[in-house]
Structures are given as C-alpha cells and as structure tokens.
Design a protein around this nucleic acid. Structure first.
Lengths: 342, 342
DNA sequence: ATCGTTTATGGGAACGTTCCCACTATCGTT
DNA sequence: AACGATAGTGGGAACGTTCCCATAAACGAT
C-alpha cells in the first residue's frame, strides 16, 4: 500500500533527507558528497551515498539550491530572433558551451526592435540569470552601459560597442578576405551590400573590405556601397541599385548570407546568372548556403569559439581581464558563386 | 558610508521584508498584493505597496518563490535543432504564448539522435520545468509513454504518437491541398520527397497526397515516392532518383521546405528549370522560401495556433480533455515554383 | 444592540538546500 | 606520549518566499 507515494504522478519528491536517512548519514554529508563543485570523493561513504541517491531517484531541487547558493547557474542570451539561422547557431553554440560547465542557457528575443532588448533583459533577470549575453548591441544604444551601472554581469557577442566585454568575430579580417578573394579573381569593380551602420559587425566587414581594396591600389567607389538591413529582402533591393550603376560591378560582397541570398534572387530576376555574369560572396556560412543551386562562397565564423570566449569573459573577474574584446578569425570557404572575371 | 550595500554590483538585494518595512505593513500583506495570480486589489494599501516596491526596485526572487510554490512557471521545449528554421519558428511561437501567461519557455536540442530526447528531458527536468513540449516524437520510440508512466506532464507538438496529448498541423490536409494544387494545374505524374517514416508529420502529408490522387481516379506510383530525411541534402539526392524515372514526373511535392530547397538545387544541377520544366511544392513556409530566385509554393503552418494549443493541453487537467489531439489547418501559398503543365 | 459573516492583516512555519561552526577521529611530528 | 594539524561529520541557521492559521476590523442582518 505504499503506492500512493511511489506511483501517483509527482507525489512527494525525494529530498536530501530521504537520501541521508537511507544512507545512514546526515544531510550535510549528503549535500557535500553530491556537490559537483567540490573535488569528487571516492571514500566508502561517498560511494554509498551516491548509490543510494541513484536508487531513490534523487534529483536536486534547483530552486532550493539556487536560493541558498545565491546563483542559478543560468545564463541569459538575447538575440534578435532565432529564425535567423546565424542567431540560432550562436545560441546553440552557447548552450553547448554552457552545458560543459554545468550551466544552462535560456534565450529571449527582441525582434530587432531598438528598445526590446531592455524588456528581454528584464524578463531574463527576473528569471534569475547570473549573467547576460547580448548579440543586439547597437551603435546608437547605451543599454550595455546601463547594465554596467546596475552591476549586471554581461558580455556582448558578435557585435561590440567597443568597450564592454565582448566576444566577436574578426569582421575586418572577414571583409578583407572576401575582398582579396574577389580581387585575386580579377574583379576590380565590386559592389557591397553593407548591412546596417548601427552594427559593429557590418561596419567592420566593410572596413576590412575597403582596406583590401586600398592595399591593391584601388579606391572603393562610395556609390558601390549600399546600406541594408540583415534581412533577405534587403539584399534583393540593394542588388537592384547596384545593377543600375554604370559600369556595373562584376562582383558583390554581401554583409551576410541572408542578403547574399536576397541578392541571388534579385540577380535571377534581372536575368543575370551567378557566377557567369557576376560573382558573389556571403558571410557566416549558414547551413543552407552550401546547398543552394549555386553554392555560395562565404566566410565561416567560429561560433563555438565565440561562444566559449563569451562565457569565459562572463565568468572572469571582470576587472582583472586585460583582453576585454576577444576576436575570433573567420575562414573563407570558396564555392561556386565566385569565378574569375571574364 | 552606505555605499557598499547600495552601489557595489549586486550587493544585498531588496527583499519582500524591505518593501514591507518601507510600506509599514507585514511581509504577508506585500506577498499577497504582489501575487499576480490573485485578483488585483486597488485598495489604498495595495497602491502604496506597489509604489514602494517599484521605488525600491524590488523584484521577486524566482528561486524562493518556486521553492515555496512548488512550481517554476517554466516550460521545457525539446526540438531536434534550432538551426532548422521550422523548429525556431515553433519555439518562438511557444515562447510568445508562454509569456502571455507569465510563463517562460526554455529549450534543449537533441540533434535528432534517437536517444538524445531522454537526455534533453532529464536536463530540463533537473532544471525544474513544470512540463515538457516535445517535437521529436518518433514512431519507433516509446519515450512519451515513459514520461507518462513517470507522471511528467507533457504534450507533443508537430508530430504525434497517436495517443499522447498532441498539438499538430493537419498534415493530411496539407498533403491533400498540395496534391490538389498540382492536379488542378494539370500534372498527373507527381514525385514525392516523402520524409522519414518515423515522423507522423511526413506520413500524414504523404497520406493526404495519396488520397487526393485517388479521389482524382489516379494511383500513386510507389516508385515516385522517395523516402528522405528532413534535411536539404536529402532533397537533392531524392530528386536525382526521381529524375531518373521514366516517364519523368512533371511535378514534385516535398515533405518540407528544406528538402524542396535541396530539390531546387538538384534540379538546377540537372539543367532543369522551375517551373518551366517541373513544378515543386514545399511545406512550412519558412521565411527564406518566399525570397528564393524562384519563390516556392508551399503550405503555411499556423505555428502560433499550434503553440497555444500545446500550452492549453499542458495546462489542462489531463484526463478531463476529450480532444487529446488538436489539429490546426495549413494554408496553401501559391508562388512561382508551380505552373500549369505544358 | 448583538450576532454571524465577510474581509484585511500579521505571525510563524514550511519549502529543500547550502554553509557555518563545533565536534570527534586520525595522523604525523617532535 | 603529547601535541597540533587535518579530515570528516552532524546540528542548526539561513536563503526569500508563500501559505496556513489566528486575530482584528468592518459589515449587514436580525
């Protein structure tokens, strides 16, 4: 007749006291032995306690542990949206890196609305996260500073504001590599779908691009650099502008894969084919672009590395770090969307 | 010299006792007034307490509240991966629906590995979620039953095992609509990229497709129905098989947008153009497909509705529900990838 | 005016864990 | 043999909240 406690859904959970009683030790001992932060003991008692805990199906109540320990081992991640595959990749990398250290990543989205990051942050902080990772930093926004003032631990990822702790890709290098690739193929007139100016990532990529051109003794024609968003549609719009220039560019560097896909679509509509009529380079290497009818030349970003750097910075003693902005290098992946100038 | 407690990061949080003291009432009163589950009082005291709480910057400690209340207002979501845009859409819809009821959705991924859903579930349950939403149900897996035995509240989303509480799209209808669309355009020989047989969603779509053909007095040629995964690459492979048939199909119904994109890519490689040479229909209407060079005809799935149904089922009194499997109808979105048979 | 009924309030226990502290046992050193 | 250092153990307080219960106040009905 002990079925009530055992079989009926969710009744009377197994606590540390049950384990202690069953193992014939005190709750303190059980707590210490099961504390994953302490060096793992292999004493007789330790083994017995672990076995008993396992048998009884004991799982630590995180609420109680968090309350007492004063931290939740939870990291909050803020991204514009998860339907942007880049952000999904970042989040998955962060989640994986978190699980390696026994933490958990929870996510909130802002839909890229300027003030929505504040709401997202509040929602995560109410949830008791120990720190925040933001991928929504904007030039025109001082939200990170506000967090700093409030003493909330945070790290910027993918985009930086230039002074907060940040883990980003080497966007200058990426832009540089993209330009060099196209220059090496003989292209001299290259259009740029430049992304938004509020993001450090797009600005960096364009700067790196410019630098490569200048090193080659060329000047980037300002009319060839078209601002855009990070969205697909925006790439299609930008390419129209680019193709109205004369002389037309023979290649395009797009700030990310999304706009590159939009550009691809726009070019098709104009009856131009890639790479015969025009070459195109994307950025990020999201899974889809290698499977497009014309697989896209793009820059692969080391999201795993960016993620672990971000978490390291978050865990760091804040002031004690000398490298406040960590930079991870991308790799150019040449595919079918780029070809030598005819 | 009170700076230590006030200004140094994260020191001494404001508790309910501080609010109580400042408002001149007891902690019990504050607790009741700030309890969002109770009807909101507008008494003199209530207003004062809320004002004081606001001024002091009080935020409830969720760990303490969860410990005492016995629930965390948190829902765990298990998806194969977030880089699959369909899953990202589902998760975003769930997160939004959760926030409407003051809950929060946290997510874990399985990478579609057969046993990984167990690990993901453990990780979420350790995190204290009140219930689980799974989008990873497989024909050949009895994990849902195991959850049921353990008394864990859960709901299946997008895919069902046929008896658990589930919120799914009407896959039969979707398959039916896709077939009807192609039949109406004059196509008679239609290839199917059928997805995996372990998922109820792909099976339903193929069944609906078959039914439409039969109603039109046709029989679906089994050699035209190619099993696949849900991945892009698999669509490219399947389309090769399909195009080796004779006579060749004049249209293709793909189980999802990913395989449709793969098919598009495969067709291009074969020198065939869409929709001139062949028509193609996808499924899910992920954002990208409307922006492809050839915008894809596809079925739009009401993720928001599926999400709120799932949460309703999760909240429901389990046994008391008569509609254990809720079904939401998709809509056909005709675009450029389908055209009348020449 | 009195009584029962509702409504608002405060005190204290409880949720399950961790951590501080005091205690004992063991060990190596002189 | 006596000592201090070290390691392991258990009791109890604490974390911040909610909830039960007892009490007080306000109210309407007789």
């Amino acid at each position: 007749m002990n079925s009530k406690a055992d079989e009926i859904p969710g009744q009377s959970r197994v606590t540390i006291l049950d384990v202690a009683a069953a193992a014939g030790v005190s709750k303190s001992t059980v707590s210490r032995i099961l504390d994953e932060r302490l060096p793992r003991s292999d004493s007789e008692t330790a083994r017995r306690v672990r076995r008993v805990a396992e048998e009884l199906g004991y799982v630590r109540d995180v609420s109680a542990a968090s309350l007492r320990r004063g931290n939740t081992m939870t990291v909050g991640v803020i991204v514009p949206r998860l339907t942007d595959t880049v952000m999904a990749m970042l989040y998955e990398a962060l989640a994986k890196a978190c699980s390696r250290t026994g933490r958990f990543a929870i996510v909130a989205t802002t839909d890229d609305k300027p003030k929505a990051d504040r709401l997202a942050a509040e929602s995560l902080l109410r949830r008791g996260v120990d720190g925040l990772i933001l991928s929504t930093a904007r030039e025109d926004d001082d939200f990170p500073d506000e967090l700093a003032r409030r003493g909330v631990p945070y790290v910027l990822a993918l985009r930086t504001d230039g002074h907060s702790l940040s883990s980003v890709g080497d966007d200058r290098l990426g832009g540089y590599l993209a330009a060099r690739h196209l220059l090496d193929l003989g292209h001299r007139r290259i259009g740029v779908i430049a992304g938004p100016s509020y993001a450090s990532s797009s600005r960096g990529r364009v700067e790196g691009f410019r630098q490569a051109l200048e090193e080659a003794g060329l000047v980037a024609d300002p009319s060839c650099i078209i601002p855009s968003t990070f969205g697909i549609e925006s790439g299609a719009v930008a390419v129209e502008t680019l193709m109205n220039l004369s002389p037309r560019p023979t290649a395009i560097f797009a700030v990310n894969d999304n706009t590159a896909i939009g550009a691809l679509s726009g070019l098709t509509k104009l009856g131009l084919s890639v790479p015969q009529d025009i070459s195109i380079v994307g950025y990020n290497d999201i899974p889809i672009v290698s499977h497009l009818p014309t697989p896209l030349t793009t820059l692969r970003v080391p999201f795993e590395q960016i993620a672990s750097n971000a978490l390291e910075l978050l865990a760091g003693d804040d002031g004690s770090l000398d490298d406040r902005i960590r930079v991870s290098a991308p790799t150019l992946i040449p595919r079918k969307s780029t070809a030598p100038l005819r």
